[in-house]
């Protein structure tokens, strides 16, 4: 039981973590909470549905194209909204992100309708371990492996490349990054791009593991924010740890409280964190 919940939490947590990395970098670099992040995730998942199911293209191909299109959407939002609102107070920018979220979600609702959709047809038989104590599907194994690959790639990018280091530097201290001559416009562009790819991937993983609905990403926004705050705003490694912690806590909580209150767990952890250590476990910005 615990083992199974841990596994479920790990999968769910990886999805939150992938989305959270972009959310926290945007937070650190542009200094606002991107409330449309969850809906970008939904967009990625539905685009994958469009290519894989409706156009019958191979999944890996759809995965990449959906990622690129979601990234392009993220960059578009920055170009036509957030960049233009630069210098206005952060609440204005955040409410415009809320508006963008509603627009994206309702575009999806208009295009694909409110019904549940599935990326894969048929029921997949899980592999059973420990006399039925642990069940895992091949899809779930793939999600876990790909998540590890993605996180490793992000780590290598952030720690080894000039652009990655510049991203972390900007997230640390934007004013100093400018004085140092870092090309901040370029960093911002690639931050949106990378966030788009990651959040789209997270959405597709979620769709593969469960199903698609237009609210899927919005429902993950709170857990993602909780992960970002838990790990310290602007800290991508914090978001990964935070995401896993939130994911696992939500699943384990079902041993003690009704499963329908699972979404409240992320909220409770977040509030607790705000009360105890608002700068997060690994961060410094408040």
């Amino acid at each position: 039981m615990v083992l199974q919940l841990l596994l479920n939490g790990l999968i769910y947590g990886s999805i939150i973590a992938l989305g959270g990395i972009g959310l926290t970098l945007i937070y650190g670099i542009l200094n606002f909470g991107h409330f449309a992040h969850g809906d970008l995730m939904t967009l990625g998942a539905y685009l994958a549905y469009l290519f894989t199911v409706q156009l019958a293209l191979p999944l890996p191909f759809s995965f990449v194209i959906a990622g690129l299109l979601t990234a392009a959407t993220a960059n578009l939002l920055d170009k036509i909204l957030y960049k233009k609102l630069e210098g206005r107070d952060s609440v204005t920018i955040m409410i415009s992100a809320v508006g963008a979220a509603l627009i994206i979600r309702n575009l999806i609702l208009m295009s694909w309708g409110p019904q549940l959709k599935f990326l894969e047809r048929g029921i997949e038989m899980p592999l059973v371990f420990f006399d039925g104590l642990l069940r895992i599907t091949r899809t779930q194994i793939m999600i876990l492996i790909l998540s590890v690959i993605f996180v490793t790639a992000v780590h290598l990018f952030l720690s080894k490349t000039k652009l990655g280091k510049a991203m972390r530097a900007m997230s640390d201290n934007t004013a100093l990054a400018k004085i140092t001559g870092i090309n901040t416009e370029r960093v911002i562009f690639w931050t949106w791009f990378m966030s788009g790819i990651l959040t789209s991937s997270a959405g597709i993983f979620l769709a593969m593991d469960t199903h698609l609905i237009p609210e899927m990403g919005w429902n993950l926004l709170l857990p993602m924010f909780a992960a970002v705050i838990l790990g310290g705003i602007g800290n991508p490694y914090g978001a990964i740890v935070g995401g896993l912690a939130i994911g696992i806590s939500q699943e384990i909580s079902t041993m003690f409280i009704a499963a329908s209150y699972k979404p409240a767990v992320a909220f409770a952890i977040m509030i607790l964190m705000l009360l105890v250590k608002p700068s997060g476990l690994m961060g410094k910005k408040v």
Partner: peptide, 17 residues
């Protein structure tokens, strides 16, 4: 005037951006 979460070496490297 430093990037606190970056290593000392990374801070210096960024000077050469």
């Amino acid at each position: 005037n430093i990037f606190p979460s970056l290593t000392v070496h990374e801070n210096l490297e960024l000077g050469g951006y």
